[in-house]
Computed example of a mutant assay.
Amino acid sequence: MSKRINAARGATINGLSTRFNDPAREADGDWLDSAEEDDLPSSRTEISYETPRTAITRNTSPDLSFDRSINAYRGCEHGCVYCFARPTHAYLGLSPGLDFERKLTVKRNIPALLRKELENPRYACRPIALGTNTDPYQPVEGTYATTRKILEILSETNHPVMITTKSARVVRDIDILASMAERGLVAVMVSVTTLDPETARTLEPRATAPHRRIAAVKALAEARVPVSVSLAPLIPAINDHEIEALLEAAAKAGATMASMIMVRLPHEVAPIFRAWLDATMPDRAARVMTHIRAMRGGKDNDGDFHTRFKPQGAYAAMIRTRFQAGCRRYGLVRRDIPLRTDLFSPRGKQFSLF
């Protein structure tokens, strides 16, 4: 049985000891967090603002299918305890623990920067990914609508976009998404990790409830927006038993493809996850970590290019076999959704006739 330690948040610790201010670290590259559980901060969300110099972030990772992304927010109020993006808060001198969930940063000038970058004569159009670091539709989006402003610009310029989210708030923008879908400019991936409300509340305390995410998949599919479902992450002895049920629900809702990622615990995520396990699921904590370490060469995490998304061992092989069989059974066999780049008009529709 699991128990709720902090009903409002995911992480159970909030120390400021990170790889940027603490030389101590484990041999496998996952950094220690010396936090104590005493004096945990308030669960109230705090918002600050920043003015970045660029909107589009570039990457050259051989493991990713995109080379550019936009993240309108730092931190994520969803509070997913396993979130691989938590370590990015350490760059701000904040904790990847509770600070990541409650001290958010809004990049209010992102839309203006994006328009300027798209108008650069040297800009070459390729799909932009939203939701690669923190969720573009987390609760703060309801106030600032930064993601919607980004989509308005991308739609106006006929620029392709890929969206990943755990939020049903994506259906708010279905007017823009449906229009972009007609032009072959958008694909949406909804992450669904469990169908069990209690598991979801423990793993992802402020993310949209599972049944609402499935409903969002259905709404997108009915609007003819290409939509897939991501089983990410699958965690041994916590949600991996739901693989087939998740795939069946996705297919019934209208998804055309599915993907999966086994849980990853980079840097500060590992001690945060272990502390959460000990606090909420002490009966299975050892079993969960035993499976994870078996898939990662005896370590909490494998951060190497080419292998970090490819867990090894018998348990990982069994999970892949079940996932692939489930995809075939429920018709989730499409492997890609090609997006058009030939329609791109950097200065928008109003200039398309000149």
Rank of each mutant, 00 (worst) to 15 (best):
S34K: 15
A35E: 03
E36D: 15
E36F: 09
D39G: 11
D39M: 12
L40M: 06
R44Q: 14
Y49M: 12
T51L: 14
R53S: 13
R53N: 10
A55L: 02
R58F: 13
T60I: 13
L64D: 04
S65Q: 10
F66C: 10
F66Y: 15
S69I: 03
I70N: 12
I70W: 06
N71P: 08
A72M: 14
A72K: 03
A72I: 09
A72L: 14
Y73A: 06
R74P: 01
G75R: 03
C76K: 02
E77F: 00
E77P: 00
E77M: 10
H78C: 02
V81M: 03
C83S: 00
C83R: 04
A85I: 14
R86K: 12
P87L: 11
T88V: 11
T88D: 07
A90P: 04
A90V: 07
A90G: 13
G97F: 00
D99G: 04
D99F: 00
F100P: 00
F100T: 00
R102N: 09
L104V: 09
L104H: 01
R108L: 07
N109T: 14
I110W: 01
A112C: 06
A112E: 13
L113I: 07
L114V: 08
R115K: 12
R115H: 08
R115W: 02
K116I: 02
E117Q: 11
L118V: 05
E119R: 14
P127C: 03
L130G: 08
T132M: 08
T132N: 04
T134R: 09
